[in-house]
Design a protein around this nucleic acid. Structure first.
Lengths: 227, 227
DNA sequence: CCCGCGCGTCAGGGTTGTGTCAAGGACGCC
DNA sequence: GGCGTCCTTGACACAACCCTGACGCGCGGG
């Protein structure tokens, strides 16, 4: 299911958006200010963001920049200002689209669909959706892991960590990068999280968790997933 | 250079676009009808398409569908019609953005930049930087060294030192420069560190550590990495 | 011939990093 | 309100890493 993050300080607009989105089977989170928005974006990993530029606590463009520092998630800007400069500034800061208020709900939804659509990975592209190892199989599209013919239950965080590692199969991923991709941009140093969750992944997926063959530790640097 | 395909039957609009785009160092092709447009799109492989919906020979939406049959190139629709239905139809057919005439050139260019930007491949993605020697292989992106088919385990400091040397393949790197790059700006004289870690690198990577062929000492000056 | 200098080698000890376990708390669900 | 799942956090043992000092060797100059 597609997850949308709506950021606006006007309750009636948020309500209208939430109702319309939920009716079309989107999963919706909402924030009323920039700080909450950045937090939610990091924690919930939305597939698309609808952002009102006029927020109470910070400049909308700064919100865009804050997001673009670590994610390429589509950002659809909503604004009451029609001036060309505003649009150019927001778009160049990293926004994907710019809609002026008052807006037609149909149009907004169509633009949302367009933004989500083009962010989708190429179907049948070069990147493998299924990664096999001698011990288990990871299906990135179906978000499923099979080991010995049986599905392995992973928690959201475990899956997220696995996903980042598998997408970088063979490459070393630094601890900082893992933390920021999974827990959000402000978590650069909490390496104990990594240790706990790497242990859980190994316990669930490695034949011998004490001597991992696929989830390899590079001391002082990071971790590496090998098939 | 970014290549743009402009499709419009109004000569003055095409002229305005071409002039503005060329001034910003885009490469521009132009078509006045749908048939020519599809042909040019296939032959020239533009990085982005600006498409007027009101064409003399075919419906603009059909042009979009024709393009989407084989390419994901960003399509920016230009139209005199403001109706919501038109927009929704074009966007759902596969357009990336929809701008109504009359439009501001600044805004259009900003939307164009946004469309091109998000079509770019992720920087630092899958492209690997690999350096090979007769004895071993260094993959700078994956932070991996392979020797005789097996991975070589390097500590952070060893890797850091190797990285600096490899990035300067063939060139002499002074002891001071090595110390400062690996241990920090305040370490200019602790040459014993270098001796210890060069020895470890040689032991792990050289066929005959006592007579190094790749990690060469230039007495009194520094070290040099040769393939 | 002896000495100083620069470099290579080795092994120990302090420091940092990692694996593991278990308990507490937040959250959603019935 | 009770229950279960999941995330966070702290404590501890152990392993890995980095620094350090000592020694040997080759070379050139006194």
């Amino acid at each position: 299911m597609t997850r949308v993050l709506v950021i606006d300080d006007e309750p009636q607009i948020v309500r209208a958006l939430v109702i319309n989105l939920k009716a079309r089977h989107y999963e919706v989170d909402a924030a009323h200010d920039g700080a909450t928005a950045l937090e939610l974006a990091a924690g919930r990993h939305p597939d698309v963001i609808v952002l009102d530029l006029g927020l109470p606590d910070m400049d909308g463009v700064d919100v865009i920049k804050g997001l673009r520092g670590w994610t390429r998630v589509p950002i659809l800007v909503l604004s009451a200002r029609h001036s060309s400069d505003e649009k150019v500034e927001a778009l160049d800061a990293g926004a994907d689209d710019y809609v002026t208020k008052p807006f037609g709900m149909d149009e907004l939804l169509a633009r949302l669909r367009a933004a989500v659509r083009r962010a989708e990975p190429v179907p049948g592209g070069t990147d493998d959706v299924i990664v096999e190892t001698p011990g288990f199989t990871v299906d990135l599209a179906a978000k499923k892991v099979v080991r010995g013919g049986k599905d392995v239950r992973l928690t959201p965080t475990e899956w997220h960590l696995l996903e980042v590692l598998v997408r970088n199969t063979g490459r070393l991923v630094s601890q900082k990068q893992l933390l920021q991709e999974v827990w959000g941009p402000s978590y650069g140093t909490e390496t104990n999280y990594l240790r706990v969750y790497m242990a859980q992944l190994r316990r669930k997926l490695e034949a011998d968790p004490a001597h991992p063959r696929h989830f390899i530790t590079e001391p002082g640097m990071g971790y590496r997933f090998e098939r």
